[in-house]
Amino acid sequence: MKLYMSKQLNIVRSPAVPLNMENVDTDQIIPARFLKATSREGFGKNLFRDWRYENDDDTKPRKGFPLNNPVYKGKILVAAKNFGCGSSREHAAWAIKDYGFDVVISSFFADIFKNNALNNFLLPVTVSEGFLQKLFAAIEKDPATELEVNLQEQTIKLPDGSWQAFEINNYKKTCLLNGYDDIDYLLSIKDDINSYETKRAFQF
């Protein structure tokens, strides 16, 4: 587990942990009863809490859950369609990052989760359904399969040379590559915001 969030991302080379389950909602990623903290740290230990442990007893890991399977490790989580749906809790992104993942791959992310991930230097990579299945198959065949996610090139590669490009808007890409965050940017355009405020029709 990491103590500090790594700002800046570019190339992540790592084996991956597969979670082949559709519609994983943020209540599964981090159940509500663990949202009582007032800091951003330490959520990794409760990541997928109710899937990881029998009867909420953290001395009894649930067999068969990928995070408990020692053959799977790495900085990349490979997830199925509609990952991160439901609640807007950013704690979900904090928990995944705090556990040690830098990249989540899926064929489809829920909107709010995707923004939350980007704001925490956790890279959501959207691939085609076909490529996703290929990733799951490769990891199942050899859990040590190393994936390479290259943000600068916007590509994800398998050791056999097959690859796919992924999309990310230029602004966010620059932020992640350089460790900038949105607040820095917004604070830098204060004049634009002030001038908008003086021109708006209604002072709601």
């Binding site: 807007s88 950013e90 949105d182 607040i183």
Partner: peptide, 22 residues
Amino acid sequence: FGIGTSEVEMVLATQCLMQTKP
């Protein structure tokens, strides 16, 4: 619409958010 905590911080600080048009 719902937002994450980093975005809550953005709005508190600047009354603005970065959004792509859906």
